[in-house]
């Protein structure tokens, strides 16, 4: 995990400048760590999927180091971590899957 990104709390408070609204969907171990399954956030334009996860993880010790081990789905389609989010997007954080048997 890169330590260069300044942590910025993903809260409902609008950051300075242009902001977008994103619905964050959380599952399994990530939902448990955060204590929520869904969170509405406002983040600056240009925020990436990974960047949003890192903001979330900054406040949750159990998520430290997890950014390289989760996948992302934007509006129910898998996307690369560096995908830039748009206003109104739904971003699902997908921990390693373990369905089947």
């Amino acid at each position: 995990m890169s330590g260069s990104r300044a942590p910025q709390a993903a809260t409902d408070a609008a950051p300075a400048g242009a902001a977008i609204r994103v619905s964050l969907l959380l599952f399994a171990s990530v939902a448990e760590a955060v204590g929520e399954r869904r969170r509405e956030v406002r983040v600056p334009e240009g925020t990436t999927a990974r960047g949003l996860f890192e903001q979330l993880a900054a406040d949750v010790p159990a998520l430290a180091g997890r950014a390289d081990h989760v996948s992302f789905a934007r509006n129910q389609q898998f996307v690369p971590p560096d995908t830039v989010l748009a206003d109104g997007d739904e971003l699902a954080v997908i921990p390693p899957v373990s369905g089947g048997a």
Partner: peptide
């Protein structure tokens, strides 16, 4: 189908033991 399902479908398994539980997350 079963081999692919296990690696791509967003479904997660939590195992419960006598003394705790853990989400299974293949690395």
């Amino acid at each position: 189908i079963i081999d692919t399902l296990k690696t791509t479908v967003p479904i997660w398994k939590k195992e419960f033991y006598r003394d705790g539980a853990v989400w299974i997350e293949p690395t």
